[in-house]
Amino acid sequence: MNWSFQPDRPIYVQLIERIKLLILSGAYPAGSRLPSVRDMASEASVNPNTLQKALSELEREGLVYTQRTSGRFVTEDENMIKQVKKELAIEQIELVTKKLIEMGFSKEEMLALIESRIKEMK
């Protein structure tokens, strides 16, 4: 995992996205224990307070939870993970379609193009 950050946005926001991705992709599986803040911060070379802020936000969203004595865990709710995954996918699709519409593509052309592209990827 490459922990690089864009220069123009707050780091905690980028950390939230990064950790979300790690959860959605299964790198941090549902119900698994997350590394300690210290270890994660040191791996990512970021400030532990900043990482703490990102984790608190993920906690507020329900993707992770804290067990008082034993640390922080990924939610066991796999449906929730799926749901978040879907939301992120939709976000990305909207970005792409918006651009393609700006470029003058019709819905049918877009679909055909995406379909043929996916077939080629195999």
């Binding site: 220069p7 123009d8 707050p10 780091i11 900043t50």
Partner: peptide, 15 residues
């Protein structure tokens, strides 16, 4: 704070 600079000015501390 670093976050305030990035959030408020939309640029890195370096910039």
């Amino acid at each position: 704070t670093v976050d305030d600079i990035r959030e408020g000015k939309g640029k890195s501390v370096d910039a």
